[in-house]
């Protein structure tokens, strides 16, 4: 018998796959955004409006990750962006290997921006690096301002937090200042936007950030 010390994180194989994928995408000039949120936070609705606003300026594709069905991919294709449906076969998150296979499903066309709409879940997607260049999370007003306290890892790994459905804020006791303070405490570098896909509030700022992220990825 022989003992070998490893001292590796349990997901080390995924971290390595993700790093390789990220380097390949950097080489191609394709920014992969990992979009994460609870079910019903408004991921697909945010994407619909964003794609409509930006599709003449950049080539965008979406990978929809769901446990089952293709309703989200159908919604995205209606707006005129390329979409593939990735089924996770019951798994609660996407990892780097699944992301690579979904990217292959998009074909050889060069894309400036590929959005991975991850499985609706604030826990496991935060633990698995997909190879994305940027991680963006949504928190909708009806979910409450205490989410950063309950799901700290998601807020820690995200580059951007978008608070969605601001148009319904008058009906909920959502404390924006408290929510932002909680998120910043976990992650001082997080960029925060407040948007409503219904009224268009905040989309100019979010889209300006996205355009500059796509541009910077190509350098």
């Amino acid at each position: 018998m022989k003992i070998i010390e490893l001292k590796e994180t349990i997901t080390a194989s995924n971290d390595r796959d993700a790093a390789v994928l990220r380097a390949e995408l950097k080489e191609k000039g394709t920014l992969l955004v990992n979009l994460m949120a609870s079910p019903g936070a408004g991921k697909t609705t945010l994407l619909e409006r964003t794609i409509r606003d930006l599709k003449d300026e950049m080539n965008i594709a979406v990978m929809e990750a769901d446990v089952d069905s293709d309703v989200d991919a159908v919604r995205i294709e209606k707006i005129g962006a390329k979409a593939v449906q990735a089924h996770t076969d019951g798994m609660c998150h996407m990892d780097a290997g699944m992301t690579r296979r979904a990217l292959e499903g998009l074909g050889d066309e060069p894309f400036d921006l590929v959005v991975l709409e991850n499985v609706g879940n604030l826990i496991c997607p935060a633990e698995f690096d997909t190879g994305a260049g940027k991680c963006v999370m949504l928190l909708s007003v009806p979910e409450g301002d205490d989410k950063p306290l309950k799901y700290p890892l998601m807020f820690s790994v995200s580059d951007v937090l978008i608070i969605t459905k601001t148009d319904v804020a008058p009906y909920f006791d959502f404390d924006f200042d408290a929510c932002i303070a909680r998120a910043k405490k976990l992650n001082p570098n997080i960029t925060i936007f407040k948007v409503s896909a219904k009224t268009g509030e905040g989309f100019e700022e979010w889209e300006a950030w996205l355009k500059s992220a796509v541009k910077n990825w190509k350098n």
């Binding site: 018998m1 022989k2 003992i3 070998i4 010390e5 490893l6 001292k7 590796e8 994180t9």
Partner: peptide
């Protein structure tokens, strides 16, 4: 954390 500390293997 969740770390693989060590493995025991057959010689």
């Amino acid at each position: 954390e969740c770390i693989i500390k060590e493995i025991e293997v057959e010689d």
